[in-house]
């Protein structure tokens, strides 16, 4: 699914924010990515959702070596990835419904084909009565739920989430985590970057920890 080998990354001429990162994410795997603020979690996710390119090292995704993949083929790879951005990144002039439907619209699907799915998903994340609301009128938690719904609506092969439950109350956080688990059960590979120890420990799945730009596996304790 995803393999990085000795990957380094820097912004412009700055210092390396990721150094010698080696990881393999197998199909169907569920992982957490933890680490203190500034450790490079968001940078690593940006690499993984193809918003940045590594400065060095090898990176392959869905069986494709990215160094050898022509640029025009990258959008098709990106459409296989669902992303929950840390700062939500919703389009303010579109309604919650249109924001969630965006990946399907980009994929060329007709509104009649996805209307029911989008409405059902929005209801499931507790926004059934806020479908036509625009992001500026939504609370932080509501925006985050719209962002999560947008990331999962196309049933991606890989789901990357950056602090997906940061602005959400614990009950809703647990409900959304169940959504991720359910997606994972249906075959989506999931990687969640979080500070939330409770979230990590509640599932007992494997965890990578980033520290000072270096990645290492956290030994598992208890159930797996």
């Amino acid at each position: 699914m995803l393999h990085l080998e000795n990957v380094g990354m820097r912004y412009g001429m700055g210092r390396e924010v990721l150094s010698d990162v080696t990881l393999t994410l197998a199909p169907g795997e569920f992982r957490f990515l933890t680490g203190p603020s500034g450790a490079g979690k968001t940078s690593l996710l940006k690499l993984l959702y193809l918003a940045e390119r590594p400065s060095r090292g090898l990176m392959s995704m869905f069986g494709r070596d990215l160094a050898l993949t022509p640029r025009q083929e990258l959008p098709a790879l990106r459409r296989r990835i669902g992303v929950v951005f840390q700062e939500f990144r919703l389009l303010d002039h579109l309604s919650a419904y249109e924001n969630v439907a965006l990946p399907l619209r980009i994929a060329g699907r007709k509104p009649a084909e996805y209307r029911e799915d989008v409405e059902e998903l929005l209801s499931w994340v507790g926004l059934g009565d806020r479908m036509q609301a625009r992001p500026p009128t939504l609370s932080g938690g509501e925006k985050q739920r719209v962002a999560i719904a947008r990331a999962v609506v196309a049933k991606p092969d890989l789901l990357l989430a950056d602090e997906p439950t940061g602005s959400i109350d614990p009950d809703m956080g647990e409900r959304l985590l169940r959504l991720f688990v359910e997606l994972n059960r249906l075959g989506t590979t999931v990687l969640i970057a979080t500070h939330d120890r409770h979230l990590v420990e509640s599932l007992g799945v494997r965890e990578w920890r980033l520290s000072g730009g270096s990645l290492h596996e956290v030994p598992q304790k208890g159930r797996s």
Partner: peptide, 16 residues
Amino acid sequence: REIVEVLHHIGARNQF
């Protein structure tokens, strides 16, 4: 820019 970047990151083709 924000809209274009989001569209780009969620897989919109340049032509789109």
